[in-house]
């Protein structure tokens, strides 16, 4: 049941973001309850007086998880590459969740800059997790650029709308059967995560749905169970949907049956 991402084996198929939690303690407990093996982090300007980043760094080291730094906020390949280089030194990992935003309203990735950045970062030895759309041509170009994992959006970041285009996501799954595919962004409910896993996606990545819920720790548990349920369902060969009813109770021997 383990998942291999750039030759790293993980057991959990839920990747969890670390932003927007009501407190560091709630974040720690949510990480623990989610069972996640991978948490996402970012970088921001550091003040030498309050040293906020240093306190967060201490917390991170106690989570015993793999760190997946992101390039959130970057709007060009150049910005994303420089940010990735800084994260590699800060977190001592070649992993990078590559985000290059192209639209301020829906935070849609700029896929042209994304592919350029992915190519250069792969050349520099990074292991790139690109936040992309469900466009399979872009996906092919990302793979050609050196990516071994793809992370299409479910819906816009933080929207909680779930999978807006399951057909496109199914197509992507069918086109790339051997590539780890992770739904990144837009999930709001555990049922959204279960649906993604039932489609055959290898994992889901989410943040807001847990952090901004009324009870983040409980919601982390709910998402963890949903991801496991969806994965088991996918592996259990679900039935085909039918247009007409079909009785599940055997008809033969029904009492009072009038021949």
């Amino acid at each position: 049941m383990s998942l291999s991402l750039y030759q790293t084996q993980v057991n959990s198929r839920l990747l969890l973001g670390t932003a927007q939690y009501p407190s560091p303690k709630v974040l720690q407990d949510a990480i623990s309850k989610s069972g996640t093996d991978i948490i996402t982090v970012s970088v921001r300007r550091e003040s030498s007086s309050d040293q906020a980043g240093q306190h967060f760094w201490s917390l991170l080291k106690d989570t015993n998880t793999h760190i997946l730094p992101n390039t959130a906020g970057c709007r060009s390949a150049k910005e994303a590459i420089t940010t990735a280089q800084m994260t590699r030194e800060l977190f001592a990992t070649p992993w990078i969740k590559l985000e290059v935003i192209g639209n301020d309203d829906n935070l849609q990735p700029n896929v042209f800059e994304l592919v350029d950045a992915a190519r250069e970062l792969s050349r520099q030895g990074f292991q790139v997790f690109p936040y992309t759309t469900d466009d399979i041509i872009v996906a092919e170009q990302l793979l050609n650029a050196g990516c071994e994992v793809l992370m299409p959006w479910g819906s816009p970041i933080g929207s909680g709308r779930g999978l807006q285009n399951p057909f496109a996501l199914e197509t992507m799954r069918a086109y790339f059967p051997d590539t780890p595919l992770i739904i990144d962004a837009g999930l709001g409910l555990p049922s959204h995560a279960a649906q993604a896993m039932e489609l055959g996606y290898d994992a889901v990545l989410l943040n807001t749905a847990v952090a901004k819920s009324g009870k983040p720790i409980e919601m982390a548990t709910a998402f963890s169970q949903a991801v496991q349920a969806g994965r088991i369902a996918y592996q259990s060969n679900p039935i085909e949907a039918r247009d007409m009813a079909k009785p599940s109770t055997p008809v033969a021997g029904t009492p009072f049956w009038l021949d």
Binding site: G17, T18, A19, Q20, Y21, L27, T40, V41, S42, V43, R44, R45, E46, Q51, A52, G53, Q54, F56, W57, L60, P69, N70, A72, M86, L90, F91, I157, G158, N207, T208
Partner: peptide
């Protein structure tokens, strides 16, 4: 000059 450190992120 930019000086950055770890930060919460999604």
């Amino acid at each position: 000059v930019e000086v950055v450190a770890p930060m919460q992120g999604g």
